[in-house]
Design a protein around this nucleic acid. Sequence first.
DNA 1: AACTAATATGCAACATTTTGCATATTGGCG
DNA 2: CGCCAATATGCAAAATGTTGCATATTAGTT
Lengths: 198, 198
Amino acid sequence: MPAMALRYAILTALIEDDLSGYDLARSFDKSLGFFWKASHQQIYRELKLLSERGWIRGTAEAQTGKPDRILYALTDNGRSALDEWVLQKDRMRLHETRDELCIKLYNLSASNVGYLHARISERREEMMRRLFLYERIRRNHYADPDSLPLRRKGVYLALMGGISQGEQYLAWCDDALRLLSRELPEVDKAATASADTA
Amino acid sequence: MPAMALRYAILTALIEDDLSGYDLARSFDKSLGFFWKASHQQIYRELKLLSERGWIRGTAEAQTGKPDRILYALTDNGRSALDEWVLQKDRMRLHETRDELCIKLYNLSASNVGYLHARISERREEMMRRLFLYERIRRNHYADPDSLPLRRKGVYLALMGGISQGEQYLAWCDDALRLLSRELPEVDKAATASADTA
DNA sequence: AACTAATATGCAACATTTTGCATATTGGCG
DNA sequence: CGCCAATATGCAAAATGTTGCATATTAGTT
């Protein structure tokens, strides 16, 4: 059987709560989604497969003020499939950044230094936003890690990994922006400076 | 036209040297490959397409002691396609870890804590090896970043990103291993301790 | 002389992810 | 009332990545 980590990410998301496809799509935009992204199409397709396989059970539910939705719950079969998967060998893909920006940096030149500076600034902003979110989750749910049940300690570790990686990324952005601004043509430099104070 | 970052990663690798498919496959195992991995099949397929499109030119070359190979060189068309791509909008995928291990951590339990501890140890080892490599490249080629030509400064930035991310990852592994060992059953704990000293 | 390893290239099938489109319901705004 | 936004679900095709196999050359080993 193939790797199909998304499948197990979905099962994992269903451990504590019953969720609809829509809920899952949104939760893959945060929390678990920090480590694994998925579009709603991937999720709906997978939900159908999991349902046919009997690993989850869907129940249609009428909602007031909104279209009906299907709430999915983990079955016993699904639960044990998940437990088995955790113990299965995974291919150790060690943090391949897979960010086009890195390749673009290999092409740094006078004609694109301004553009790349701007892209890194954007990423810095975006990471900042994400870190606020992480930190909020941490404060609200993981303030006292020692007192957490074992499973939540695992989630806590993943979260802390995300936070410290994010902080490292911010620091790198700052270094990169500093180096690049020294190479910026004077015109761009002025524009960037005024954008910073705006 | 689609993103196809691999295509441009290959062109980037050909900026300074002419390389064969085999050379590329190996260079995607280091250097550029820290940011973008590719199998030899992906590379050969792409080389053929790029060749047909006239962005690279392949020249068969007899070698003494080895089978013939095809050396590829960037053409002027390829060079300008690459320059244009750098300035094109990329989708900002912010460091999605995409490591199954993170999802598995969300499933931490007494029955898998030993297994997960072992997997994190492996990753720590692997990252250590990678960092040695990074550091060697840094010492040999980027010891004095200020004196580098502009393009190489970009490569330097990517490299430094890799190094500091790697160091952050090592620190996270240590934290995680410490937390997990406190949850290890006594038998496993003894086994882990003796493995450490071996 | 057969066997193994490294070099060097490639196809076909499959798995996975992304993109573009399509549809329906309800609530609020102007 | 018509339009827009959010909720909620889904198909089909294209792009991208992985796996398994196949082939050929040369060097060194058994």
